[in-house]
Structures are given as C-alpha cells and as structure tokens.
C-alpha cells in the first residue's frame, strides 16, 4: 500500500507561537484551477489585537538590540530560507507560479534579506547628522524606530512581497503584525517557521492570514500601532486606512506602485527610513573662557 502523506496544518504566528485563530474560522486556499491547497486560519479582530499586545511587548527588547545583532538575525533568517528553499519553490508552484519563476522568487527573497541584513547597522550612518548649530551646543539627529507597524502584505505574491515589506521594518528595530496574501497564504505561514528558527525574538514579526477586506480597518485604527503599510492600488481602501489612521496620528505608507521583483525599486534604505523617527539631541558644550584649542 502507498504511504499516506502527512498534511501540514497552516497556522498563524503570534508572539513566537503557532496558534490557530481564536475565532475557530478557516477558509480554503485554492489554486487557479480551484483545487484546494490547504485550510487556512481566517483571522479575526481579536487575533490582531492579541498580536498588537505581543508586538508592543517585543518592541523594547528588539529596538534596543545592538544593530549588529539585528543584522546577524536577519542574516540568519536568510540562511534558514536558503536551506528550505525547495519547500518554498514547491509551495509557489502549488500556488500557480511557473517553476523557473518560483525559483527566481525564492532566491530573490533570500538576497533581499541579505540586503537588509547589511543595512541594519548602516542606515543610521547614512540618515544621521551632526548639526552645526550657531551656539555652544553639541547637536545630533539619529533615526529611531517608530514602534509597532501593521502591514497588509502585497496580495499578488506569496513570498517576495511579504519579505520585502517585513525586512525593512524589522531591520530598523520596529516590530510588526503582517496580514499575508489572502489568496496565496502558504509561503507566509512557512516563512513564519523560518523566522521561528532564526533567533528572531517572539513577537517581533507576527503573521496572520485572512481577509484584508475584513481586517484592514482594525490594522488602521488600533491606538497602539504607530505606522501602517499598505501595498494595493485600491483607492477606497487607501482612503479608509488614511481616515482611520487619524485617531492616533498614525503614519501611513502606500507602496502601491512598487514592483517587488524589480531589484532597483523593490529594495532601498529609504523603505527603512519610512518607519523611523528622527530624534534630535542637544547638550551644552562648556565654553571655558580663554581656553585655546589643544594644538
């Protein structure tokens, strides 16, 4: 008798754990031919709120990690993805991506993680300044992470879009809650398994599956979310997000014209800068009368 295959349960990822949605709801992810691929959690507002709590809890620790350490962890994520690339290629193919493109997408995703791993301890130097104020003060401006970021991942890809929006946010020291592609959710869940084995502290990245149409308003109006990323062209949804964001003066970034497969536009330290605040610090310089320079 032929061996019976063990099927994978696709669960969500909150606080470093793989729970099912608290709602108990699911939907069936299908390929273009309408064949079912998996039962996927249909997340609720409560799942999102739970994720927001753990993301906030993880922010202090993650943002105060040494940038070098964050860089190593992003590199580790790339390592884990590299060694499981066959699984991702297989999942992409299941979700109707041609084999050659599937491989290309996975390799590009790995490279994108390496790209942002490198930026973790460099973007600060590019975007900082020492400001030559006209008074006796030492004054400098540095980027700091804005906090917790809610993200509706690009819906037209399963992996590259997801990786491209998560990486710059966490490279900069933020934590995030991501809603995966509704129709192509498989790689997002598998990517959570990669994250879970990459020394990334629990709660830094939280991945939900479900319907953007149902959850987007909660992603936008939650009072403990500092910024939001939206990647679709839907103008009505964009407006809805921007209106809901007003409640706590949330920063909203719409990446609706980005081709994530294109290296020139899909990756840049300016994506990191979007979820950063610039902090300026002043301190007096003692001006000792009559003292000359040390030369």
């Amino acid at each position: 008798m032929k061996r019976v295959e063990v099927l994978k349960t696709y669960k969500i990822y909150i606080g470093g754990q793989f729970p099912r949605t608290e709602s108990g709801r699911y939907y069936i992810a299908k390929n273009k031919a309408g064949e079912p691929l998996a039962n996927v959690c249909l997340c609720s507002r409560k799942d999102f709120r739970d994720a927001a709590v753990v993301a906030r809890g993880a922010f202090g620790g993650w943002s105060s990690r040494a940038a070098f350490n964050r860089s190593q962890i992003l590199y580790r994520i790339a390592e884990m993805l590299e060694c499981r690339k066959a699984q991702f290629i297989e999942e992409l193919i299941k979700q109707d991506v041609a084999p050659a493109q599937a491989e290309e997408e996975v390799l590009l995703s790995i490279d994108r993680l390496i790209y942002y791993a490198g930026w973790c301890d460099k973007f600060q130097q590019v975007f900082s300044s020492v400001n030559p104020v006209a008074s006796s003060y030492f004054n400098f401006s540095v980027p700091e992470p804005t906090g917790v970021v809610s993200i509706i991942a690009p819906q037209d890809t399963s992996l590259i879009g997801l990786v491209s929006v998560i990486a710059p946010v966490i490279a900069g020291g933020n934590t995030c809650i991501v809603l995966a592609s509704e129709t192509k959710p498989l790689c997002a869940v598998t990517f959570a398994e990669v994250l879970n084995s990459s020394d990334l502290p629990g709660g830094v990245v939280n991945i939900l599956t479900g319907k953007p149409s149902e959850l987007v308003k909660y992603f936008a109006d939650h009072m403990d979310i500092n910024a939001m990323v939206y990647c679709e062209k839907d103008e009505a949804t964009k407006k809805l997000i921007q209106e809901k964001a007003v409640l706590n003066v949330k920063r909203v970034f719409c990446y609706d014209k980005i081709d994530w497969n294109n290296e020139a536009e899909g990756q840049s330290p300016y994506f990191i800068l979007d979820s950063q605040e610039i902090k300026t610090t002043w301190h007096p310089i003692e001006n000792i009368g009559g003292a000359k320079s040390g030369y």
Binding site: N248, T280, W282
Partner: peptide, 25 residues
C-alpha cells in the same frame, strides 16, 4: 523628537524639529 540634555528650548535652523506619536510627523 527633540531631547534637550542640561538645557531646554533651544532652536537652530540646522537642527531638525518634530514629533513622535500624536505630536505629528
């Protein structure tokens, strides 16, 4: 967005100014 150490309310054209959270962006 602006932190003054051992001073307060100092301003300069070269020095970026602005808030976190509900103090704006």
């Amino acid at each position: 967005g602006v932190v003054w150490a051992n001073t307060f309310n100092k301003f300069d054209p070269t020095s970026p100014f602005g808030g976190y959270k509900e103090s704006g962006f």
